[in-house]
Amino acid sequence: NQASVVANQLIPINTALTLVMMRSEVVTPVGIPAKDIPRLVSMQVNRAVPLGTTLMPDMVKGYA
């Protein structure tokens, strides 16, 4: 199973992502692939993302 990107903490709306905010985990449904973590750094979330939430492409500005 492919690992997805999961929030390692509460990420407030419009926050630029950093490595410490994200972890990889095998979850259902599948979200953004963990291999894309380096690409996500500095991108902003367009909503508040609670701890443990799988990041989906529509949550990150400029990803999709």
Results as ranks from 00 to 15, higher is better:
Asn1Glu: 15
Asn1Gln: 15
Asn1Thr: 15
Gln2Asn: 12
Gln2Arg: 03
Gln2Tyr: 15
Gln2Trp: 13
Gln2Ile: 14
Gln2Val: 14
Ala3Ser: 11
Ala3Glu: 15
Ala3Cys: 15
Ala3Phe: 10
Ala3Ile: 09
Ala3Pro: 13
Ala3Asp: 15
Ser4Gly: 05
Ser4Leu: 01
Ser4Tyr: 03
Ser4Ala: 03
Ser4His: 01
Ser4Met: 02
Val5Ser: 03
Val5Phe: 02
Val5Cys: 06
Val5Thr: 10
Val6Tyr: 02
Val6Trp: 02
Val6His: 02
Val6Ala: 04
Ala7Met: 08
Ala7Glu: 00
Ala7Asp: 00
Ala7Gly: 03
Asn8Lys: 11
Asn8Thr: 14
Asn8Ile: 06
Asn8Pro: 02
Asn8Phe: 10
Asn8Val: 13
Asn8Tyr: 06
Gln9Ala: 11
Gln9Pro: 01
Gln9Gly: 05
Gln9Ser: 08
Gln9Thr: 12
Gln9Ile: 09
Leu10Ala: 13
Leu10Val: 13
Leu10Cys: 13
Leu10Ser: 11
Leu10Ile: 12
Leu10Gly: 09
Ile11Thr: 02
Ile11Arg: 01
Ile11Ser: 01
Ile11Leu: 12
Ile11Asp: 00
Ile11Ala: 01
Pro12His: 09
Pro12Cys: 15
Pro12Arg: 10
Pro12Phe: 08
Ile13Tyr: 08
Ile13Pro: 10
Ile13Met: 11
Ile13Ala: 07
Ile13Asn: 10
Ile13Leu: 09
Asn14Cys: 12
Asn14Tyr: 08
Asn14Met: 10
Asn14Trp: 11
Thr15Trp: 08
Thr15Asn: 04
Ala16Ser: 09
Ala16Asn: 05
Ala16Lys: 05
Ala16Ile: 09
Leu17Lys: 00
Leu17Glu: 00
Leu17His: 00
Leu17Phe: 02
Leu17Gly: 00
Leu17Trp: 02
Leu17Ser: 00
Leu17Arg: 00
Leu17Tyr: 01
Leu17Ile: 11
Thr18Lys: 06
Thr18Pro: 00
Thr18Cys: 05
Thr18Ala: 07
Leu19Tyr: 11
Leu19Trp: 11
Leu19Glu: 04
Val20Ala: 10
Val20Cys: 15
Val20Gly: 10
Val20Met: 14
Met21Pro: 00
Met21Ala: 05
Met22Pro: 00
Met22Gly: 01
Met22Lys: 00
Arg23Tyr: 04
Arg23Leu: 04
Arg23Cys: 04
Arg23Asn: 04
Arg23Met: 04
Ser24Cys: 12
Ser24Trp: 08
Glu25Gly: 06
Glu25Thr: 11
Glu25Trp: 08
Glu25Phe: 06
Glu25Leu: 05
Val26Cys: 12
Val26Ser: 10
Val27Phe: 02
Val27Thr: 11
Val27Glu: 02
Thr28Met: 07
Thr28Ile: 05
Thr28Trp: 05
Thr28Glu: 15
Thr28Cys: 11
Thr28Val: 07
Pro29Ser: 06
Pro29Gln: 07
Pro29Arg: 04
Pro29Asp: 12
Pro29Thr: 11
Pro29Ile: 08
Val30Asn: 12
Val30Pro: 12
Val30Lys: 04
Gly31Val: 02
Gly31Tyr: 01
Gly31Met: 02
Gly31Leu: 02
Gly31Asp: 01
Gly31Ile: 02
Gly31Glu: 00
Gly31Trp: 02
Ile32Gln: 00
Ile32Trp: 02
Pro33Met: 11
Pro33Trp: 11
Pro33Tyr: 12
Pro33Lys: 04
Pro33Cys: 15
Pro33Arg: 05
Ala34Trp: 14
Ala34Phe: 09
Ala34Asp: 15
Ala34Tyr: 09
Lys35Arg: 07
Lys35Thr: 15
Lys35Val: 15
Lys35Asn: 15
Lys35Gly: 14
Asp36Lys: 04
Asp36Val: 05
Asp36Tyr: 06
Asp36Asn: 06
Asp36Glu: 10
Ile37Gly: 04
Ile37Asn: 01
Ile37Lys: 05
Pro38Tyr: 12
Pro38Trp: 12
Pro38Gly: 09
Arg39His: 15
Arg39Ala: 09
Arg39Leu: 14
Arg39Gln: 09
Arg39Met: 12
Arg39Cys: 15
Leu40Gln: 00
Leu40Trp: 02
Leu40Pro: 01
Leu40Lys: 00
Leu40Tyr: 03
Leu40Thr: 01
Leu40Cys: 07
Val41Ala: 04
Val41Met: 14
Val41Tyr: 07
Val41Gly: 02
Val41Thr: 07
Ser42Trp: 12
Ser42Leu: 11
Met43His: 06
Met43Trp: 11
Met43Val: 04
Met43Asn: 04
Met43Pro: 00
Met43Arg: 06
Met43Cys: 04
Gln44Trp: 10
Gln44Ser: 11
Gln44Asn: 05
Val45Tyr: 00
Val45His: 02
Val45Thr: 13
Val45Met: 08
Val45Lys: 00
Asn46Glu: 13
Asn46Gly: 11
Asn46Pro: 03
Asn46His: 11
Arg47Phe: 08
Arg47Pro: 02
Arg47His: 13
Arg47Thr: 06
Arg47Val: 07
Ala48Cys: 13
Ala48Trp: 06
Ala48Pro: 07
Ala48Gly: 06
Ala48Gln: 14
Val49Met: 05
Val49Tyr: 02
Val49Gln: 02
Val49Lys: 00
Val49Leu: 09
Val49Phe: 02
Val49Ala: 06
Val49Ile: 14
Val49Gly: 01
Pro50Leu: 07
Pro50Val: 14
Pro50His: 13
Pro50Asp: 15
Leu51His: 11
Leu51Thr: 14
Leu51Glu: 14
Gly52Ser: 13
Gly52Val: 02
Gly52Leu: 09
Thr53Ala: 13
Thr53Ile: 11
Thr53Glu: 09
Thr54Tyr: 02
Thr54Met: 04
Thr54Lys: 04
Thr54Asn: 02
Thr54Ile: 11
Thr54Phe: 02
Leu55Met: 12
Leu55Glu: 00
Leu55Ser: 01
Leu55Asp: 00
Leu55Val: 09
Leu55His: 01
Leu55Asn: 00
Leu55Pro: 01
Met56Gln: 13
Met56Asp: 05
Met56Leu: 12
Met56Phe: 09
Met56Ser: 11
Pro57Ser: 14
Pro57Arg: 10
Pro57Val: 07
Pro57Met: 07
Pro57Gln: 15
Pro57Cys: 15
Pro57Phe: 14
Asp58Phe: 13
Asp58Ile: 09
Asp58Leu: 11
Asp58Thr: 06
Met59Leu: 06
Met59Ala: 07
Met59Val: 07
Met59Gly: 03
Met59Ser: 07
Met59Asn: 05
Met59Ile: 06
Val60Phe: 06
Val60Lys: 00
Val60Gln: 00
Lys61Gly: 08
Lys61Cys: 13
Lys61Leu: 10
Lys61Glu: 07
Lys61Gln: 14
Lys61Val: 11
Gly62Thr: 08
Gly62Val: 04
Gly62Met: 14
Tyr63Asn: 03
Tyr63Ala: 03
Ala64Tyr: 04
Ala64Gly: 10
Ala64His: 11
Ala64Ile: 13
Ala64Pro: 06
Ala64Met: 08
